[in-house]
Simulated assay, not measured.
Amino acid sequence: MSNDPNALKERISDLEHELAVKEAELHRYRLELGKANQVLEKMIHQMGQELKMAQALQKKLSPTELPNVQGFEFSTKFLPGTRSGGDYFDIFEHEDKLKFGILISSATGYSLSSLLLSVIIKISSQMEARRGLEAHKVVSILAKDVLPNIQNEDRANIFYGVVDRRSYEFQYCSVGDIDGFHQIYGKDALSELIATGPSLGKDFNTEPQSRTIQLNPRDRLILATEGLKNSQNSLGVGWGGHNVMDAISKAPRQGVHELRNEILYANQKYSGKEDPVRDQTLIVTEVKDRVIKLAKN
């Protein structure tokens, strides 16, 4: 480095100028960061408000009272997710009072959920007028209304089943990822209600199909949306469908409410969270003894 005082002064002046430029740039970056943070906070607040509104809407739309169907007992639970959701369920009698339907659905986001809910409500209100339709035909109607409006990677899962109390046959159609199990009284093994088609999405081109099972006294049907099995523990490992089945199998043989609570408790114990990240819906249905016997006379 030169010992020339003038050269040193010039160098110091250059450094001071560079420092002033850097400080000006830093100030500008801080202002831009502050504005970006404000925008981000506003977006987070808006998303939070929309999430709260969606949760409130879903709670209002979910049935608060279940029909009193002779020969059957129901226990249901809907837990809204803290980050995402899209679940809906309903249990309703047909105009033919010896038939009733069970509907449970989930969607990947609240935007699609709102659409799906409106379509489901529309179909549910018309269900009696369309009495006698097979399960897969009802799902086909839902699919035709939903598919044209699905955006990007949105997916929807629907399970619809009809119980005929004349024969105690349960006909169902399941598209997507709704867990369904038939717990046969007196047997240890669970029968899985296999999906009859993929979830609804832009690539959906499947003709839904129905399946039929026979219900007997004290049999149970357990239906759950994917929010239950997809809940994760602290290591990020999902609970999985096998743990859903394990919780059902290990639960004491008590009432439907006790079984529902045992499943939810096992899930909460695994995840370590009181409130699920994603919506969870659980429906437990049990066939009772005496009305079946009367129906056979």
Rank of each mutant, 00 (worst) to 15 (best):
N6M: 00
L8N: 07
E10G: 08
E10Y: 02
D14K: 06
D14C: 12
R30Y: 01
L33H: 01
L40S: 03
K42N: 15
M43V: 05
Q46I: 07
E50C: 09
Q55K: 01
E65I: 14
L66D: 05
G71S: 07
E73P: 15
F74G: 11
S75I: 06
T76G: 02
F78R: 02
G81I: 04
G86K: 00
Y88K: 08
Y88A: 13
D90V: 03
E93M: 02
E95M: 14
K97H: 08
I102V: 11
I102H: 01
S105D: 00
G109C: 06
S111H: 00
S113W: 05
I120Y: 07
I121G: 04
S125L: 13
M127W: 01
A129I: 03
L133N: 14
L133I: 04
H136I: 10
A143S: 15
K144Y: 14
L147Q: 05
N157K: 03
R166K: 14
F170G: 02
V175M: 07
V175Y: 07
I178H: 10
G180E: 10
F181G: 00
Q183L: 09
Y185H: 02
E192W: 05
G197K: 06
E207Q: 10
P208G: 04
P208S: 12
Q209F: 13
L215C: 04
P217M: 08
G240C: 01
G240D: 07
G241R: 10
H242T: 13
M245V: 10
V256R: 12
N261T: 04
N261R: 12
N261K: 08
E262S: 11
Y265N: 11
A266L: 03
L282M: 11
R290F: 09
R290L: 15
K296P: 11
N297R: 15
N297I: 06
N297T: 09
